[in-house]
């Protein structure tokens, strides 16, 4: 089943002198349950592409179809709602809410979605123990290591079982051992819950773990391999 499809996606930044085609004619199809890495040198357009697919940024032209909806046609208000209901986000610098506990951070999106309390509590406990933090429910972000915080972030993104998860360089701030652990955990959850992951990286070890690798160069897809 197709989760995401982009058609001739283009993003042009017009500066004062030069025009940058950050994403250039990208046609991309992501299937349900795929675990895809987008790789490429710095400035190749990874972030721009992920932001557009994640409904955070508008393309200059082209379509992004998610679940039969062209999200480029949605207004800001519809987009926020769309993100809340369909997309999980993991950011490079964790971005947890510092005043909330790990469990509250994970519950947060489900609460925004208006789910019932009992369901939220069960799911929060389940997903936090899946990421190996079942004993840290009441810890606040500052009491957790970087790796642990990013695992809470993954749990937060996964908790509401979104259609797909977007992660822009999720391991960039982590050391290699923690990176590997996080990736293994993401893979496990991907298999267990059949949730689609789309993430960018320029770390070769992360690339090795991916099931599908898309290489970007100057905003264009130069290779796309499934393992």
């Amino acid at each position: 089943m197709r989760i995401i499809e982009t058609k001739n996606l283009v993003k042009v930044y017009t500066g004062s002198t030069v025009e940058v085609r950050a994403v250039d004619s990208v046609d991309l199809v992501i299937e349900q349950g795929e675990f895809t890495a987008i790789v490429g040198p710095s400035g190749s357009g990874k972030t721009t592409l992920l932001n557009m697919v994640g409904g955070l940024d508008q393309p200059t032209s082209g379509e992004i179809i998610v679940d039969n909806v062209d999200i480029t046609q949605l207004n800001q208000k519809q987009l926020v709602d769309f993100r809340l209901k369909n997309i999980g986000f993991v950011f490079q610098s964790y971005n947890l809410i510092p005043v909330l506990t790990a469990a509250e951070n994970v519950s947060f999106i489900m609460e925004l979605q208006g789910r019932v309390k009992s369901e939220i509590d069960t799911r929060t406990k389940e997903i936090l123990s899946d990421v190996g933090l079942g004993d840290r429910l009441t810890s606040r972000p500052f009491q957790l290591s970087g790796g642990q915080q990013q695992r809470v972030a993954v749990a937060r993104a996964m908790a509401s079982r979104p259609k797909f998860i977007i992660a822009d360089e999720p391991t960039a701030n982590l050391d290699s051992k923690t990176t590997e652990k996080l990736l293994d955990m993401m893979l496990e959850l991907n298999e267990k819950e059949n949730i689609t992951f789309l993430f960018s990286t320029h770390d070769q070890r992360v690339v090795n773990k991916a099931r599908r690798v898309i290489v970007l160069e100057d905003g264009r897809i130069v290779s796309d391999e499934r393992k």
Binding site: G54, L56, D81, N95, I97, L112
Partner: peptide, 12 residues
Amino acid sequence: REIGMLAAIGMN
């Protein structure tokens, strides 16, 4: 940054 994140993950 935090408010931006909240907006990104779907807080209207």
